[in-house]
Design a protein around this nucleic acid. Structure first.
Lengths: 143, 143
DNA sequence: GACTATTCTTACCGGCAAAGTTGGAAATTG
DNA sequence: CAATTTCCAACTTTGCCGGTAAGAATAGTC
């Protein structure tokens, strides 16, 4: 049960933007370099993040990306939902009709609960949290 | 973030065994038929479940599988761990050394929390719970 | 002891989605 | 207009997951 790289990359990129919040644009290559994410790949992610409004992007020289809203307003559940799409752990949760046993399936509830648990954790964590923790950690590491 | 079929199959097979607990063996083909799981595939799962002790299997005529312990003692976290193997959502949780940023990575904690949340839900549900719920549901469906 | 039924073991396969690449089109700036 | 950067779409690659196949081991039965 893995978190797809997209999400990992996405979160890291967004944290990077959060750390830079209020200080202008960051360009894809910068983020990619700092987080060692394949640049071309990250580019795709950035545009989907832009399309949804989590990020605001500008092209051309001095272009780049900034957060679309305050770091406190963006939580990881959003990111997950956008970049991973199908959130639920099993087909039959999203499409109960596809399962013959749907009506009398004891497991359904559990997987649903699992999904909620995940979403719970993620929606409780904002980019602000992560950014703050990040600065602490790098400060520690520097010492 | 999907639950692999293995796990779904495994749980369903085990519930089937739980429903049959104390009434002798169940053979792979029976379980496969009732839950419409590809038989050959299920066979593999059963043997790994056997190897770990969740199931006790006997070959030869009148062979088959029974639960290795009481339904109350088997929870879904066990099943998940056995059949999914790598439980944690991201490489860097299982192998922190493989990640350059490990020491100053703000996200690690979250993915760990997510893993714990999942494990929490799963370890709170036993086969007994599921079996009981199952009988209720089928009774309802019959009406 | 031969026969049969069942699990065990191993090796293989196909498909599909995820990760990543490439090339070019659209903006934006100076 | 030239340079820079994002955007877009199509393509390639790779790994793994779900499933298949076939034979070996084991356990009962007559």
């Amino acid at each position: 049960m893995r978190v797809p790289m997209k999400v990992d990359y996405g979160v890291r990129a967004l944290v990077e933007l959060a750390l830079h919040y209020g200080q202008g644009q960051l360009q894809t290559w910068e983020i990619a370099a700092r987080q060692s994410i394949p640049e071309a790949y990250l580019e795709q992610l950035m545009t989907t993040l832009n399309k949804v409004g989590l990020v605001r992007s500008r092209r051309g020289p001095q272009g780049g990306h900034i957060l679309g809203m305050a770091p406190e307003e963006i939580n990881l559940s959003m990111v997950m939902n956008i970049l991973d799409g199908n959130f639920s752990p099993l087909e039959c949760i999203t499409y109960p009709n596809d399962c013959v046993f749907a009506e009398s399936c004891a497991q359904q509830e559990i997987w649903r609960t699992v999904a909620e648990a995940i979403q719970g954790v993620l929606s409780n964590t904002t980019l602000a949290d992560l950014a703050q923790r990040q600065t602490k950690l790098t400060a520690q590491a520097a010492r």
